[in-house]
Amino acid sequence: MFEQIIISGFGGQGALFAGQLLTYAGLEEDREVAWLPSYGPEMRGGTARCTVTVSDEPIGSPITDTPSAVIALNPPSLEMFEPRVLPGGLLIVNSSIAKEEVKRKDIRSLRIPATDMARDEFANERMANMILLGALVSMTRVVTLDSVMTALQKNLPQRRHHLLEPNRIALQKGWDIAQQASKD
Protein backbone atom coordinates (compact mmCIF):
# COMPACT_ATOMS: atom_id res chain seq x y z
CA MET A 1 0.00 0.00 0.00
CA PHE A 2 1.19 3.48 -0.81
CA GLU A 3 -1.06 6.51 -0.29
CA GLN A 4 -0.14 10.18 -0.34
CA ILE A 5 -2.93 12.37 0.91
CA ILE A 6 -3.05 16.15 0.88
CA ILE A 7 -5.40 17.92 3.30
CA SER A 8 -5.67 21.61 2.55
CA GLY A 9 -7.70 24.55 3.78
CA PHE A 10 -7.66 27.89 5.58
CA GLY A 11 -5.71 28.15 8.82
CA GLY A 12 -8.12 27.20 11.64
CA GLN A 13 -10.06 24.60 9.64
CA GLY A 14 -8.08 21.78 11.18
CA ALA A 15 -6.27 20.54 8.07
CA LEU A 16 -3.03 19.97 9.96
CA PHE A 17 -4.73 18.21 12.88
CA ALA A 18 -6.74 15.92 10.60
CA GLY A 19 -3.49 15.01 8.85
CA GLN A 20 -1.73 14.30 12.13
CA LEU A 21 -4.58 12.08 13.24
CA LEU A 22 -4.34 10.09 10.03
CA THR A 23 -0.58 9.80 10.55
CA TYR A 24 -0.98 8.57 14.12
CA ALA A 25 -3.59 6.08 12.89
CA GLY A 26 -1.12 4.75 10.32
CA LEU A 27 1.46 4.33 13.07
CA GLU A 28 -1.14 2.41 15.11
CA GLU A 29 -1.20 -0.07 12.24
CA ASP A 30 2.61 -0.28 12.12
CA ARG A 31 2.84 1.33 8.72
CA GLU A 32 5.52 3.69 7.52
CA VAL A 33 4.13 7.23 7.84
CA ALA A 34 5.20 10.82 7.30
CA TRP A 35 3.40 14.11 7.96
CA LEU A 36 4.80 17.13 6.19
CA PRO A 37 3.12 20.48 6.79
CA SER A 38 3.40 23.39 4.45
CA TYR A 39 4.52 26.13 6.75
CA GLY A 40 5.17 29.73 6.14
CA PRO A 41 4.50 33.24 7.25
CA GLU A 42 0.75 32.71 6.93
CA MET A 43 -1.20 32.56 10.18
CA ARG A 44 -4.92 32.34 10.93
CA GLY A 45 -6.96 32.77 7.77
CA GLY A 46 -3.99 31.94 5.56
CA THR A 47 -3.47 28.60 3.86
CA ALA A 48 -2.68 25.50 5.87
CA ARG A 49 -2.03 22.13 4.35
CA CYS A 50 -0.14 18.94 4.93
CA THR A 51 0.91 15.86 3.01
CA VAL A 52 0.40 12.52 4.75
CA THR A 53 2.18 9.45 3.40
CA VAL A 54 1.09 5.99 4.53
CA SER A 55 3.06 3.10 3.09
CA ASP A 56 4.12 -0.49 3.57
CA GLU A 57 7.62 0.39 2.38
CA PRO A 58 10.10 2.92 3.77
CA ILE A 59 9.10 6.35 2.49
CA GLY A 60 11.28 8.13 -0.05
CA SER A 61 9.87 11.50 -0.95
CA PRO A 62 7.42 12.87 1.63
CA ILE A 63 6.52 15.46 -1.01
CA THR A 64 4.23 14.73 -3.91
CA ASP A 65 2.84 16.53 -6.92
CA THR A 66 0.51 13.60 -7.63
CA PRO A 67 -1.44 12.82 -4.44
CA SER A 68 -3.60 9.69 -4.39
CA ALA A 69 -6.26 11.54 -2.38
CA VAL A 70 -7.06 15.14 -1.49
CA ILE A 71 -9.38 16.79 1.01
CA ALA A 72 -10.10 20.33 -0.19
CA LEU A 73 -11.52 22.38 2.67
CA ASN A 74 -11.77 25.66 0.75
CA PRO A 75 -11.95 27.03 -2.82
CA PRO A 76 -8.22 27.76 -3.35
CA SER A 77 -7.41 24.18 -2.30
CA LEU A 78 -9.94 22.75 -4.75
CA GLU A 79 -8.56 24.90 -7.53
CA MET A 80 -4.95 24.00 -6.73
CA PHE A 81 -5.27 20.25 -6.15
CA GLU A 82 -8.06 19.00 -8.42
CA PRO A 83 -5.66 18.92 -11.39
CA ARG A 84 -2.99 17.08 -9.40
CA VAL A 85 -4.93 14.08 -8.06
CA LEU A 86 -3.62 10.83 -9.55
CA PRO A 87 -5.96 9.38 -12.19
CA GLY A 88 -8.23 6.97 -10.32
CA GLY A 89 -7.53 8.87 -7.10
CA LEU A 90 -9.96 10.57 -4.76
CA LEU A 91 -11.04 14.17 -4.22
CA ILE A 92 -13.23 15.08 -1.24
CA VAL A 93 -14.57 18.61 -1.21
CA ASN A 94 -16.01 20.70 1.59
CA SER A 95 -18.91 21.95 -0.55
CA SER A 96 -20.15 24.38 2.13
CA ILE A 97 -17.29 26.65 1.14
CA ALA A 98 -15.85 25.26 -2.09
CA LYS A 99 -18.95 25.55 -4.30
CA GLU A 100 -17.43 24.67 -7.66
CA GLU A 101 -18.36 21.28 -9.08
CA VAL A 102 -15.55 18.76 -9.60
CA LYS A 103 -14.74 18.79 -13.33
CA ARG A 104 -12.48 15.78 -13.66
CA LYS A 105 -14.08 12.50 -14.72
CA ASP A 106 -11.03 10.27 -14.26
CA ILE A 107 -11.06 10.48 -10.45
CA ARG A 108 -13.52 9.58 -7.72
CA SER A 109 -14.98 12.58 -5.96
CA LEU A 110 -17.41 13.35 -3.16
CA ARG A 111 -18.81 16.70 -2.15
CA ILE A 112 -19.89 17.03 1.48
CA PRO A 113 -21.28 20.26 2.99
CA ALA A 114 -19.12 19.58 6.01
CA THR A 115 -18.96 23.07 7.52
CA ASP A 116 -22.77 23.40 7.42
CA MET A 117 -23.21 19.94 8.90
CA ALA A 118 -20.69 20.64 11.64
CA ARG A 119 -22.47 23.86 12.53
CA ASP A 120 -25.98 22.38 12.41
CA GLU A 121 -25.26 19.07 14.10
CA PHE A 122 -22.37 19.84 16.46
CA ALA A 123 -22.77 23.61 16.89
CA ASN A 124 -19.07 23.71 16.03
CA GLU A 125 -17.82 24.43 12.50
CA ARG A 126 -14.43 23.07 13.44
CA MET A 127 -15.79 19.52 13.35
CA ALA A 128 -15.89 19.73 9.53
CA ASN A 129 -12.40 18.28 9.24
CA MET A 130 -13.44 15.12 11.14
CA ILE A 131 -16.51 14.56 8.93
CA LEU A 132 -14.31 14.82 5.84
CA LEU A 133 -11.60 12.60 7.33
CA GLY A 134 -14.20 9.93 8.16
CA ALA A 135 -15.30 10.00 4.51
CA LEU A 136 -11.72 9.77 3.28
CA VAL A 137 -10.98 6.76 5.47
CA SER A 138 -14.15 5.08 4.24
CA MET A 139 -13.34 5.64 0.56
CA THR A 140 -9.61 4.83 0.68
CA ARG A 141 -9.42 2.33 3.57
CA VAL A 142 -5.93 3.74 4.08
CA VAL A 143 -6.41 2.94 7.78
CA THR A 144 -9.38 1.58 9.71
CA LEU A 145 -11.80 3.90 11.45
CA ASP A 146 -10.92 2.10 14.67
CA SER A 147 -7.29 3.14 14.32
CA VAL A 148 -8.34 6.75 13.84
CA MET A 149 -10.48 6.53 16.99
CA THR A 150 -7.58 5.01 18.93
CA ALA A 151 -5.23 7.68 17.64
CA LEU A 152 -7.74 10.35 18.69
CA GLN A 153 -8.02 8.90 22.17
CA LYS A 154 -4.24 8.75 22.57
CA ASN A 155 -3.37 12.10 21.10
CA LEU A 156 -6.11 14.51 22.07
CA PRO A 157 -4.74 16.40 25.09
CA GLN A 158 -6.46 15.55 28.38
CA ARG A 159 -8.03 19.01 28.65
CA ARG A 160 -9.78 18.40 25.32
CA HIS A 161 -11.15 14.97 26.19
CA HIS A 162 -14.69 16.34 26.38
CA LEU A 163 -14.35 16.62 22.58
CA LEU A 164 -13.62 12.92 22.10
CA GLU A 165 -17.24 11.87 21.73
CA PRO A 166 -18.27 14.62 19.26
CA ASN A 167 -15.13 13.92 17.19
CA ARG A 168 -15.95 10.24 17.17
CA ILE A 169 -19.51 10.92 16.03
CA ALA A 170 -18.27 13.32 13.34
CA LEU A 171 -15.83 10.74 11.97
CA GLN A 172 -18.60 8.13 11.92
CA LYS A 173 -20.90 10.63 10.19
CA GLY A 174 -18.36 11.14 7.40
CA TRP A 175 -17.85 7.40 7.09
CA ASP A 176 -21.62 6.83 6.78
CA ILE A 177 -22.06 9.56 4.16
CA ALA A 178 -19.33 8.00 2.03
CA GLN A 179 -20.85 4.54 2.45
CA GLN A 180 -24.25 5.86 1.39
CA ALA A 181 -22.77 7.71 -1.58
CA SER A 182 -21.04 4.56 -2.82
CA LYS A 183 -24.43 2.78 -2.82
CA ASP A 184 -26.23 5.57 -4.68
Binding site: V33, A34, L36, I59, P62
Partner: peptide, 8 residues
Protein backbone atom coordinates in the same frame (compact mmCIF):
# COMPACT_ATOMS: atom_id res chain seq x y z
CA UNK B 1 11.52 20.12 5.73
CA UNK B 2 13.68 18.06 8.09
CA UNK B 3 12.77 20.42 10.90
CA UNK B 4 9.05 20.38 10.15
CA UNK B 5 8.32 16.81 9.05
CA UNK B 6 6.83 14.34 11.52
CA UNK B 7 7.88 10.68 11.30
CA UNK B 8 7.96 7.61 13.54
Amino acid sequence: SIGQIMEP
